[in-house]
Amino acid sequence: MPDQQFEPKIVGFLCRWCSYTGADLAGTSRIQYPSNIAPIKVMCSGRVDPTFVITAFADGADGVLIAGCHPGDCHYSVGNYKAMRRFPMLAKLLDQFGIERARLRLEWISASEGHLYADLVKSFSEEVRALGPLRWKQRIAPLCESVDIARSQAATV
């Protein structure tokens, strides 16, 4: 039974040109969706460094969304294809960490698809809720000091 009390924390990396604008449109259209998602604006889904995703999980996220422009519609021509190619690699990495793949999503939301964004947040929240809390500290942190090392390296650059 999914824990109804559990409110998953989801971090959304949203492309400024499509998904972030689409999420704004959901707002101007007053389409209601769960408050579990916290958006972080990036210039392109291609900017989403896999380390951002792992860091989000490590910092307490139960789910992570990467949302960019539909294939062929990228504001920077092909940035979303880079995100698309990194995604299977990330998924594999999650496997190795023992994180359920369903906790990470890559989706295409255009600037006019506020309703799709709202639907996505609804369904993704439910899915992550059903998976339960990630419990990084208990489950995964002991396995991967290397992430902390990677982070401290990034911070010093």
């Binding site: 210039m43 392109c44 291609g46 900017r47 989403v48 460094d49 920077y76 940035g79 880079k82």
Partner: peptide
């Protein structure tokens, strides 16, 4: 776009 930044292995 920042795609190169995400792809740079050495930071």
């Amino acid at each position: 776009c920042g795609t190169c930044v995400a792809g740079c292995p050495s930071g």
